[in-house]
Design a protein around this nucleic acid. Structure first.
Lengths: 350, 350
DNA sequence: CTGAAAGCGCTTACAG
DNA sequence: CTGAAAGCGCTTACAG
């Protein structure tokens, strides 16, 4: 099936190739209406569709956006960033060329130069989780950083507002009436910036509520269910009056461990213990019993934002990152503390 | 930064553009060794790198592979297929253009024609889960189907060997000494082909082991933790001598529900009940307590296979799909049945 | 209002 | 052994 070319359309319509090009590209219309119509009709009839390669060679625009990521495609974690970015590209008639570097610097720098060489119109550099990184060499100006930001700025970037997320999670618990709220922090060697930001949100909300943060309620865990189990066991081994009535976990995996431990020890959630996670991780948070109240990471929104900036559809600051809201997702793991619940039920009717 | 062109290299080396092209492309070498060397050196010095757009226009090969998928990028489920495919492409100097259709037929057909129009060298069509589908219109010959297969064949395809996986899961339990093994099947309206294949594997292994499949032990659940909880509750409400000592769950989410229910009811896994899942779902299977023995879906291997075929690196049958092995992943949720364990321990020493 | 010509940066027969 | 020329399929000044 030899494809029909612009020249074929021109011949069939009895005009020059230049005219066909002008008409089909809606150039400033010096072409007569009847010619335009005829050209369009003929193009339609023969099913003409311009060869994007030839067009790119001439115009130097390819209609493609490069998306390089460390591990976004490999982990179940952040696929929605990719999906959000891809969706915006498609809506705007662009194609995304994806390269996943699996975290290898050599692959990354090769990917960047390949993409630049392929004349992508724009580029987004995505990380699997919120981090601050040195900007890779060779990145074109205007590359947008997704879920990470470059040391020293200089590029548009979007990251989750983890401080506000930490506040929201804690506020949810304070509002339910809790005073003894634990924070199970990320205890991995390479503690991410998000952990610190969420902690600050937690501390600030507590303080504003007139609750003095208790160091005994700030514990660390490896970010996995097993870590969550150990951490909650530690917390629950505190003297009864010092135990938390609620816990805010750094992420849903840790929260899952808390829930599992509770099941095994006959502790009811949320009646005996409230828990709030973070991430709203698919196939985890909603699957717990009870379904977990958590703070969602706005992956799709960040992906969309990044692509909009890459396409020039949206202006962006290159000095400081755009902070994306992390909305709380209310499910069923938060309730008033037990003493409040039992003290209240008989008396209050509302 | 105006890039250096082939003509620049030619001028600097004092030869014609044709010569440069021939040398750099290692064409059948009619060029003298000294000329070759000089051209290569000059090209190197000026940092020449051919413009792939111009080359594509001339040669009609673009070095790109189109990957259209329904939802592979959006769900946490099958990202490894994408990663495997992308990895093979990269290893072979190709770029993958990804379009996720989110399951919309209009987007899909538009994506296919866009990709074809962009002159991709090959195409892979990926599904989120093993299914048989009508081949979308407009798909180029040789498009490889990933984790799905076209009705009526005609294209290379790769799917997991779910029958063998069902056998492996059941065999694991039979080998541990179980005789009363339940299968919690997919009870969703649109029961996937994998559910039937796994069931057949289960029945066949049981039969071969001289165990008559008990219809009471074949139950259905919605594929979520909640479904698993209801199913195991149903199973455990059977008279004691009819209850299963082991369960094979259609997937890890259902298995997770089984484990949660067990925790709540003081049933120990694997001492009191063995469980085998399916999928080896990241961030789920290994996170359970105990970590789940399961059958893994070979997503990365399937992704690699599909891309290898798309690149012509591997021959493939277009009549019947390639069946990819689903290896069992042994963790800690399987043990001999309780009566065997207690009967055996005092006597056997090995 | 429209056409002829040049050119984007390569590759590849065709000559010599 | 190497070069001049044509051509891939478009777009865009430049003429008229």
């Amino acid at each position: 099936m030899t494809r029909v070319r612009l020249a074929d359309v021109a011949k069939a319509a009895g005009v020059s190739p230049a005219t066909v090009s002008l008409v089909l590209n809606d150039a400033e219309s010096r072409i007569s209406d009847e010619t335009k119509e005829r050209v369009r009709r003929v193009a339609d009839e023969v099913g003409y569709s311009p060869n994007p390669i030839a067009r790119s060679l001439r115009t130097r625009v390819t209609g493609t956006i490069g998306l390089v990521s460390d591990r976004i495609a490999t982990t179940p974690f952040a696929g929605r960033m990719l999906a959000g970015a891809q969706e915006v590209a498609r809506e705007n008639g662009r194609l995304v060329i994806l390269v996943d570097t699996d975290g290898h610097p050599e692959i990354e720098s090769e990917a960047i130069s390949t993409l630049v060489n392929h004349r992508v119109d724009g580029m987004v550099y995505a990380s699997m989780y919120h981090q601050i990184i040195p900007a890779p060499a060779g990145l074109p100006a205007g590359t947008v950083f997704l879920d990470c930001r470059p040391e020293g700025g200089g590029y548009p970037a979007v990251v989750p507002d983890d401080y506000a997320g930490g506040r929201a999670a804690t506020q949810e618990l304070v509002d339910a009436g809790h005073r003894r709220i634990a924070y199970i922090d990320d205890g991995d060697d390479d503690r991410p910036i998000a952990a610190q930001l969420r902690l600050e949100g937690y501390v600030d909300v507590l303080t504003e509520a007139g609750i003095e943060p208790d160091p005994a309620l700030h514990v660390f865990a490896v970010t996995a269910a097993a870590g969550g189990q150990r951490a909650i066991a530690e917390l629950m081994s505190l003297p009864e009056d010092q135990r938390p009535t609620a816990v805010f976990a750094f992420n849903d995996r840790i929260a899952a461990g808390v829930v599992m431990w509770a099941h095994r020890h006959g502790i009811r959630i949320p009646e005996d213990l409230s828990v709030v996670g973070y991430d709203d991780q698919q196939l985890v948070a909603a699957e717990l019993d009870p379904p977990l109240t958590t703070v969602s990471l706005p992956h799709a929104a960040m992906g969309r934002w990044a692509m909009e900036v890459a396409l020039g559809l949206r202006a962006a600051d290159t000095d400081s990152p755009h902070l994306m809201d992390c909305p709380i997702v209310r499910r069923a793991s938060v309730a008033p503390p037990a003493h409040l619940g039992s003290a209240r039920d008989p008396r209050v009717t509302d």
